[in-house]
Design a protein around this nucleic acid. Sequence first.
DNA 1: TTGTAGGCGTTATCAC
DNA 2: GTGATAACGCCTACAA
Lengths: 338, 338
Amino acid sequence: MNRLKKYASSTDVARLAGVSQSAVSRTYKPGASVSEETRAKVLAAAQQLDYRPSMIPRIMLTHRSNLVAIVIGGMYNPFYSVVLEQFTIRLQAAGWQVLLLHVDSGHSFDAVIPRLASYRVDAIVSALAVLAPESAAELARFRIPTISFNTPVKNEWLSSVCCDNWGAARTAVDLFLARGARSFGYIAGPAGSPANEERLGGFRERLRELGHPDPIVIGGHFRYEGGYASALQMCRGPDRPDAIFCANDLVAIGAIDALRKELRLDVPGDVMIAGFDDIPAAGYAGYDLTTFVHDGKRMVDESLKILAAATASPPEPHEARIVVPAILIERGTTAPRP
Amino acid sequence: MNRLKKYASSTDVARLAGVSQSAVSRTYKPGASVSEETRAKVLAAAQQLDYRPSMIPRIMLTHRSNLVAIVIGGMYNPFYSVVLEQFTIRLQAAGWQVLLLHVDSGHSFDAVIPRLASYRVDAIVSALAVLAPESAAELARFRIPTISFNTPVKNEWLSSVCCDNWGAARTAVDLFLARGARSFGYIAGPAGSPANEERLGGFRERLRELGHPDPIVIGGHFRYEGGYASALQMCRGPDRPDAIFCANDLVAIGAIDALRKELRLDVPGDVMIAGFDDIPAAGYAGYDLTTFVHDGKRMVDESLKILAAATASPPEPHEARIVVPAILIERGTTAPRP
DNA sequence: TTGTAGGCGTTATCAC
DNA sequence: GTGATAACGCCTACAA
């Protein structure tokens, strides 16, 4: 066995300080009864040995690791990097440590579950575009409280915090109509993504409600390149729509660039565009994109409430499904035609 | 003590399977000698109890946690989100687990060191704009191998992997001159950032070498808004430069938007712009920004080599300071004037 | 206020 | 091939 001992132990400190190991332990426990004299001896010895108490034995004794796993599936979308950052900051402030895991797709989630379990994480946050129901079931077997970010699955151990995609998409219809649009397109994200399906669903529903024809639908990615290609395809012919709702901001920005640079169309003069997320680039003067605020901070907030309740002892019940509204931000890409 | 035992232990499995605890342990150790019969009994019992071997006692015995801490200081810059993602993917593939820490500034690094130490991380990756030398010294006290990403500090426990900012900045001068520019500006990042200082240093050095006047320098942030404001200030008057080198792409994009939208100037016709990093937005048709590839993948690669050597037993010596070249990508913002 | 002793869940070593 | 047994570093009764 590898006996490369790098850290001093409390026993080492105790020996050097001429006290018992428990005295060392008590020195580092807030509110324990240690005399000033003992404490001073311990701290001096600890300083000399660069001693730091280890969390590891504590995990064994308490069955709590203080570790929260964040499982993420791609950070090309700035929305998710912001969410990851927010989660990290907030969890750290609450005394948790973050174990970061990356998975390629919903299915490879299963592959990392054993790793999570072997580190005895106290909770899991899944920030994936797609969380497969089978993975959710597999998770439940380990009885680890889990929060699904943006995928509305749930079971006894799994809560979800989502954005009101459906409602926002309905609002997009009303906005486009108020601005004079009469024909519509939707540039879609990947099939199987609940966010994409809800956004399309709400958009189509509201159009039907008001007696308008269904939108043209093209797409399949949440990326800039996808929006670029789809917009070209959708607007090249004579029957191009007046207004396009995009699955997210990256797609919308791709669409804007394609329309302006390739087709020499004016946005919003020829075609109006709206996106979803309100990533930083949506606010850049070059795009000035109308979009819906995907309120990551608020969602992280709600997630932490659930997490705190679920990891309390005894666990308190808490809302298992939270839906946060998405606020419309009207910018230049849906400006009224002069 | 909180006796909320959530996971089955090897002892539980052994009891159910009717074998010894050691037999269970051996079943999960690759290449250990267990009969097929015993293995089957163990696996059946384990399945029934949802048993997963715990890493925690192993850490105590081996003094290795298999944990690598990544310390990050802000992910507003897409370059850093990509780097974080790359690190995570690569470390995971190599069998490590990632502990993610966020710090606000170079100084708050010190506050997280005890946390790292208490989890007995095997190595640390610091991906900060600024790593204070005092923090580096503090780190060394714990004898944890550390890699400093983009900050060229070093000591016995600290290696660095940086980008050739200086050389790239010199190349920017040559490019601008070849395209006909005769007066120059530099929109700066934050003071104290080595990357910013090297980029300015190389830019100024090469201009002097060739007998050109020093650039106008304005700035102070690595963000879009900073670039926007600085470009306005720099180009509003009559003595605006022909070409501006920006501390990074976010700043460059802000500058482009300010010049085009606020000052009605043409880029590159009136002012040429070059950035640094090659973030995705630099390639968007709306910006088409000339820039230098900040090769995150390659840098992660080099980091992992150092890490592997430093955590090997016995530790192998390895290059302590790596500099990766930054390749020029010429796009529209420095296109020759027609 | 202090020290002693037992145990947390593994791995490694040793007889059998 | 198998089962005891001793660590690992800490926390927590309990006794002094």
